[in-house]
């Protein structure tokens, strides 16, 4: 047990309205995009609008979390924003979120970077600070407007979105029973300073990277808390595409039904730091009292954070006002040209 009291006291997600299909991306590069999309298990991805970035996404998700959890913004003592697509290379997004959420200045804040798992690292930092009595409530956000190099496989999945989790004690909608991580130095994906697009190590990203870290952290957490896959109602894994989370889940003994509610990448793409957290938000949208949720993130570089969570009776009063599935359905398709403009892939746009 962490301490038997700390948990999620509010949550919210944000998925931009625009979508581009794998087929549309494929057209530009003379590829069968539908086939590429099917092989990745991603049919379309969410595209942030011209005037959206990882800060605006973080603010929208955080405001939903604060409103739905009925949290006084003045009680928030720490804000950690996980992202690999920060609007500023130097200047925190966390301060923008703090100000836009009406928080007092009496808080600590920082941006975290650990590829796709910086958001869950923020959750762990908040758990520690809340459980130790340093702060009353902590806000952890995973938010990205991920970019893939044009005509790279990543372009079919790199998407925009994010989620926010408020961590605290006293009537949590879900208790965080335990968390555990597994981390090694594995160069499967990176972006050097000043480089516009990330580089990935192709096939190397699967077995020694994603699968090794997710399954090690997951197995160790279940060992530590004495559970097996059967004890969980829902399981959420980092979802860089539609295939990896299903494979790792099945390997760990989960079935498709347990993975269903939290699997959103097939419809919105990989939201990077947001991915496992948007999945968790989608699960919390439908979870019932007593449901046990397994979550395991993955960040390239590489590491995984696993969580064992139990939903409480307070869920009914604190469900996010804007459910993830509704944001997924509320969409408008854009052409590759509009996507290139929105995401400023055309040189000279800012």
């Amino acid at each position: 047990m962490v301490n038997g009291k700390v948990g999620i006291v509010g949550y919210g997600a944000y998925v931009p309205r625009y979508r581009i299909t794998a087929e549309e991306i494929g057209k530009v590069w003379n590829k069968d995009g539908k086939r590429t999309g099917a092989s990745l298990g991603v049919s379309e991805k969410a595209v942030a609008a011209w005037d959206e970035d990882s800060a605006t996404i973080a603010v929208q998700a955080s405001r939903t979390a604060i409103e739905s959890g009925r949290i006084n913004p003045n009680d928030i003592g720490a804000i950690f924003i996980g992202s690999e697509s920060k609007p500023y290379a130097v200047k925190p997004t966390a301060t923008i979120v703090a100000e836009a959420c009406g928080c007092s200045g009496n808080l600590t804040a920082a941006d975290f970077e650990f590829a796709c798992k910086a958001g869950t690292a923020g959750i762990q930092a908040c758990i520690g600070m809340v459980a130790s009595g340093m702060i009353k409530v902590g806000l952890a956000v995973g938010s990205d407007t991920a970019q893939g190099r044009p005509n790279d496989a990543l372009e079919f999945t790199a998407a925009s979105g994010g989620a926010a989790m408020l961590i605290g004690e006293g009537e949590p909608l879900a208790l965080i029973n335990q968390t555990l991580s597994y981390t090694t130095d594995t160069p499967d994906f990176w972006r050097r300073q000043h480089a516009e697009f990330p580089t990935h190590a192709g096939r190397f990203t699967g077995e020694p990277a994603y699968f090794k870290h997710v399954s090690t952290a997951s197995k160790r957490l279940m060992e530590k808390v004495g559970t097996t896959a059967k004890d969980y109602t829902h399981a959420v894994f980092h979802q860089p595409n539609g295939k990896f989370p299903v494979k790792v889940g099945m390997d760990l003994g989960f079935d498709k039904k347990q993975l269903e509610a939290g699997l959103v990448t097939p419809l919105i793409g990989n939201t990077y730091s947001g991915a496992s957290m948007v999945g968790l938000a989608a699960v919390l949208d439908v979870a019932k009292e007593g449901d046990r949720i397994f979550v395991c993130s993955y960040g390239s570089g590489a590491g995984s954070d696993a969580f064992d969570i139990t939903v409480t009776k307070y869920i009914e009063g604190k469900r996010a006002k804007t459910p993830v599935r509704r944001m997924i359905e509320d969409k408008e398709y854009v052409s590759y040209a509009t996507y290139a403009k929105f995401r400023k892939k055309i040189k000279d746009l800012e």
């Binding site: 609008a49 005037d51 959206e52 970035d53 605006t56 603010v59 929208q60 405001r63 836009a100 800012e350």
Partner: peptide, 10 residues
């Protein structure tokens, strides 16, 4: 909603 209003160049 919260959005970017403008950016002063790159």
């Amino acid at each position: 909603v919260f959005r970017r209003i403008f950016a002063e160049g790159e």
